[in-house]
């Protein structure tokens, strides 16, 4: 089996501090994998390393293969191509991921026309406008025409995250990386965005790397999980196995904590 994303013995350091140690996992095409961890677990750094976006000062060792291409040590200009087609990222805070001075329609149009150019079928004018509206419609934004003309600050948090997802989809990636995509959102909005992600990933047969601290959210979103603690994977496996019969004490303590709130909601405490 050739994995779409193959992380092998990844280590990330800054100075003398090791932030991620000896991490290995794979994501097959069409597969949904979750990285679970609390703050300082290195889960977000792993996502950045997967696309070669680690900030300066952080050094990655080991191997990260994205669509068969080695990411670590590859110059940025060669990775740009890969980032556009093989993988796209959706971040936690959509307000900082969007340009505040541009109408969102234009922001969605950029990756769309870039991808179209790359495929040899350039889009422009009304064809491009139509593609933007179709994409906004696909991420279930009501009244796409009005929203395409809006600026990010005129939209709600949930609408902005839908725009960010639309921009990621515009690249038609094989792998969608979502880094805490619903953490900044209200509970009811979170449920809508999770449903949307679930539908899109299935419809487009994308692989999903879902990064979160929220166990119930991960449990409902992915097939396989990697539990990270202080930069090390403590447990890996199918969701049902890891959450049903956790092997590591840390996983058990996380599950016990999550379950206590679950039980309280069910009226058992």
């Amino acid at each position: 089996m050739s994995a779409l994303l193959d992380v092998h013995r990844l280590t990330i350091r800054t100075g003398t501090t090791t932030l991620v140690r000896d991490l290995s996992f794979q994501t097959a095409s069409g597969e949904r994998v979750g990285l679970i961890g609390e703050s300082g677990s290195g889960k977000s750094l792993t996502a950045l390393a997967a696309t070669g976006l680690l900030p300066a000062g952080l050094v990655a060792e080991g191997s990260v293969e994205l669509a068969g291409q080695q990411v670590i040590g590859t110059p940025d200009n060669q990775l740009d191509q890969l980032r556009g087609t093989a993988a796209a990222i959706v971040f936690q805070e959509p307000l900082t991921a969007l340009d505040p001075l541009k109408r969102v329609g234009r922001q969605v149009a950029e990756p769309l026309s870039r991808r179209a150019r790359r495929d040899g079928r350039p889009l422009s004018g009304t064809a491009l406008d139509g593609a933007v509206l179709a994409l906004l419609d696909e991420v279930a934004l009501s009244d796409p025409t009005r929203i395409a003309r809006a600026y990010p600050h005129e939209l709600s948090g949930g609408q902005r995250q839908r725009i960010a997802i639309a921009m990621a989809l515009a690249c038609r990636p094989d792998l969608l990386i979502a880094d805490e995509p619903t953490t900044a959102l209200d509970v009811t909005t979170q449920a809508e965005i999770l449903n949307l992600l679930d539908r899109l990933v299935r419809e487009r047969n994308m692989a999903l790397l879902f990064i979160s601290h929220d166990l119930p959210v991960v449990a409902n979103t992915v097939e396989r999980v990697v539990v990270l603690r202080k930069g090390e994977a403590v447990e890996t496996g199918p969701v049902a196995t890891v959450f049903g019969a956790p092997q590591h004490d840390y996983t058990r303590s996380l599950l016990a904590a999550a379950r206590s709130f679950d039980d309280a909601l069910e009226g058992r405490s």
Binding site: R13, T14, G15, T16, G57, L58, V59
Partner: peptide
């Protein structure tokens, strides 16, 4: 010592 740490020092 990595490059980053050296630069810092």
């Amino acid at each position: 010592m990595t490059a980053a740490a050296e630069t810092q020092a």
